[in-house]
Design a protein around this nucleic acid. Sequence first.
DNA 1: GGGGTTTTCGCCTATTGGTCGAAAACGTGG
DNA 2: CCACGTTTTCGACCAATAGGCGAAAACCCC
Lengths: 231, 231
Amino acid sequence: MGHEVLAAVLRVRGASLQVMLWERAREPHAHRWSLPGGELRVDEDVESSIRRQLAEKVDVRQLSHVEQLAVFSAPDRVPGPRVVATAFLGLVPSDVDPEVPSDTAWHCVDELPAMAFDHASIVARARHRLGSKLSYTNVGFALAPPEFTISLLRDHYSAALGYRVSATNLQRVLSRRLLLEPTGGTAPPGPSGGRPAALFRFSAKGIKVTDPFAVLRPPGSGRPAGGGGTT
Amino acid sequence: MGHEVLAAVLRVRGASLQVMLWERAREPHAHRWSLPGGELRVDEDVESSIRRQLAEKVDVRQLSHVEQLAVFSAPDRVPGPRVVATAFLGLVPSDVDPEVPSDTAWHCVDELPAMAFDHASIVARARHRLGSKLSYTNVGFALAPPEFTISLLRDHYSAALGYRVSATNLQRVLSRRLLLEPTGGTAPPGPSGGRPAALFRFSAKGIKVTDPFAVLRPPGSGRPAGGGGTT
DNA sequence: GGGGTTTTCGCCTATTGGTCGAAAACGTGG
DNA sequence: CCACGTTTTCGACCAATAGGCGAAAACCCC
C-alpha cells in the first residue's frame, strides 16, 4: 500500500487567496491540476517528506508555516493501486514570489481549475483550517512579511477569511495578545497620499502558533498556563 | 510500507480521565501497553478501519465521538519494517461500561504504565486535543450520558481539563451557546441530601462538534454563518 | 494653503467569562 | 416537626474582550 504526501500551499496575492498547483502532463487525469507532493520514502517522516518535495517547487525557506491537515484514504481516491495521502497546509508570506517550475502556477482558491483526484477537497479543507486558525492562533503572521502595516495585515486576513475585518479591531485584538511589536519605522504612503502607516513585527511574547486558547480557563488565571493565551 | 490505525479512546471515570489500553503478549515490547488498532486493509478508509478494529474491543455504538488526531511517521517508530500510523481520538460516555477483552483495561492518563512504541506520545496528543476542543466545541457532551446534570458535566470537564471549573459558569456559557436543553426531569439527590439537580440533554441548535468558532466574526453577525458559533 | 486620502486613536457599547452570595429544595437527627 | 447541613440554582456584580464610530493626525497633490 503506497503512501504519498501532498500540500496545499496558500498565499495571499492582492485581495485573493491563492494555492500552488501544477498541471499533470500524463494520465491519469492529464491536464488536470494537482497539489505538489509525492511518494513517502522509507527513511523520512511525513513532514520531512513534504518539505523535501516542496523544495523541488519553491525555496523551502520561503515557507513560513507547515502543518498536518488530515489523512485522505478513500480506497478509490486514485485509480490503480491503493495510495493513502497525508495532506499538509503550507503558507508563504506575501512579500516573496518564489520561482516555480513552468508547469506550476498559483490559482485563486475560489476559481479553481479542473482538479485531479480528491485534491479539490484537500484545498477546501486547507482553506477551512486557515480560516479557523486565524481566529485563535497567530498563523496570520505567516501570511505577511516580517515587517508589515496594520492595513496590510487586515487585507490578508480579509482575503483569507472572505470578509472584511476592521483594522481598528484587528490591531487592538492582536495588541492585547501581545503579538504586535512596533518597529518604529513607517511605510511610505501610497500614490494617493495618506498618513504613513506604522510598521510592526510579530512578537513571540504571545501565544504559540498551534496553541488554541482556553475559553474555560484555569481558575484565577487571566490566560492559560504555559506562556500565553488569547481571546 | 505498512499503514496502521490506532486510537486513544478516552472516558471519564469518577474524577479521572482514562484511556483504553491492551497489554502486549508478544515481542516486540511484550508486557508493555499499547493502543488498540491494527493494519489498514486495502478496501477501507482509515476511519472505517479504526471503527472496525475498535469493534473488536468495545461495542462501537458506545463510541460517542471519533476524529482524526495526527499521523505518526517517524521511520523508527516501530522496530522492523516501516509502519506509518494514523492516530484517532475516541470518546466513550461515562454511563456505559463496555465489556473489554481480558488483555484490555482502562488506565488513568496521568498514571500510564510502560507504553509500547510511541503510544505514550499519542495519548498525550489526544489529551491535549480533548482539552483544547472542550473550550470551543461541544465534544464535552460526548463524555456524558444522554441526560445529565450540570454537576456531572462539570465533573467531567474538570477531569478532562485537569482543573476545577465552575458549575455556574459552565451552565451559563453552554446555555448562551444554545447547547443545553432541560428535559424537565430531575435527578435524585445523593445520600447526604441536597436539592435535586435538573436534568439536561444536548441540544443540536448550537455549534457542530468539529466547528471552531470565529473570534473575528463576519461583520454584523453575532455568530458566524452556517448555523452557529460561540465565543 | 486647501481638499482628498489614509492611518491612528480615543470613546462608547455589547457580549462574554468569572466570582460571589443568597435562595431553593432536599435529607437527617434531634 | 423543626433546626441544620448539603447540594443545586439563580441573580447580581465585576472584569475582560470585541465591535463600531468619529475625530484627529499625517501625508499627497494641486
